Simulated assay, not measured.
Amino acid sequence: MDSIAPWRRVMAAIRKEANGRWTAVVKDGRRYVGAKTFDTKREAQTWAASEQSKLSAGVDLKAGRVRVETRLATWVRDREGAVAPGTLTVDADLARVLPRWFMGLSVNAVTEAHVAQLLVGWSRDDRAHSSVVRYRASLSAFFADCVRARLTTASPVAGVRAPRRIDPAVEMQPFTEAEIDLLADEIAKLNERLADVVVVAAWTGLRWGELRALRVGDLIEVPDAMLRVQRSRSEGRDTKSTKSGHSRLVPVADRVKPLLLAMAQAKAPTDLLITTDRGAAIHRTAFMRSTDWRNLGKGRRIHDLRHTAACLWLARGVPVVTVKTWMGHADISTTDRYVHHLGTTADRAGLALLNGPGANLGQTSSDGVNRPDAHKLP
């Protein structure tokens, strides 16, 4: 759109209504642009000046009154083939994560305050900070396009940063082996297949998206039972590579092997391995509802099943470096969190020595002499 012609006059009139309120009327030459009524004259003047400034900058105010929801749909369609598939996925996902109140705003009515409220809400919704950052970047690209289309004068996103999580980070709460068995028994009363899914998750350490993306062909039986983890499939997204971008092999313990073999039975190699008892892909919300997770999980998250696997491995003496590989961690410092939580094999062995026979040997007697039998009663 061309800039406004210099001979055209952008005018505003302020009038007082019979009820005591003030109405601002804005015109572009002879063309009526809009009017709005306020409680005070100052508010009316401020709004009129803002509208005049937008018109002088060449913004089409009437076009800018299109709702965010409507413009967003057009923008996503225009992005197809112009951006990477991953970027397009995040862009399209905005329609799902933007709240109704935001989608109902006019494009040129969105302010930095609105965006700040939106980002804080996302941070409080138990979304990872990285997800909030990605959505903010997509929203920024959307409003940058609106500026180019002269629907608004400036992006309301540019000056607002994604806040860090307001709530403290959730600590991991791994299950013990006994707790996993008990949990599986309770869930089996509701759904036996989903109880098996819990056991598989707790003994393999796979992320939820990795569990959903496993195919029958990823289950290796010889020479040793292993799972080849090479893809992830978040709900509502296309299948992609794992978080690290690399495939890995995860051993299948005897506790899990028969469960996986039963899931693979009568399926083709390209079929999903982890499915419901009806053969459908697993979904987090349906899983939590069908397993009564909020009660039976006792405050744990589904992701704590992944933490459980790392702790089970370390408790059995698997080296930290091996656990890092099985978990798919990019850095050993991530795996070290489990060591700090659980302690090392050496720590536990040392504690066993302290608590074993002869723990009281070498105590000092009342006369100050160190005698091996000083702990014995007379």
Rank of each mutant, 00 (worst) to 15 (best):
T74F: 15
R100G: 04
E51W: 13
V170H: 12
G159R: 05
D145F: 11
A154I: 09
A162R: 05
K62D: 01
I180K: 01
E43F: 14
R96E: 08
G104T: 05
D145W: 12
M103N: 05
R124C: 11
A73T: 13
N108I: 01
V83Y: 06
R79T: 03
Q52Y: 11
L139K: 09
A154P: 03
G86W: 07
S140H: 11
Q52P: 06
V120T: 14
V170Y: 13
Q117T: 15
A92I: 01
A113D: 08
R96G: 08
D91M: 04
R79F: 09
W75A: 00
A162I: 06
D126T: 09
A137T: 11
R150W: 08
W101M: 03
S106K: 05
A178M: 07
L98Q: 00
F143N: 03
V120F: 12
R164S: 13
T89F: 11
A169I: 10
Q173A: 14
A154T: 11
T152V: 06
Q45I: 13
A63C: 08
R124G: 15
L98D: 00
V157A: 03
E80P: 02
D145G: 07
R124E: 11
A116N: 08
S123Q: 09
V59R: 00
H129M: 09
W122K: 02
V76S: 01
V107N: 01
V147Y: 01
F102I: 01
T111G: 01
T89M: 12
A158C: 06
V115M: 05
R65M: 15
A162W: 07
Y135T: 06
R65Q: 14
A73I: 10
W101P: 00
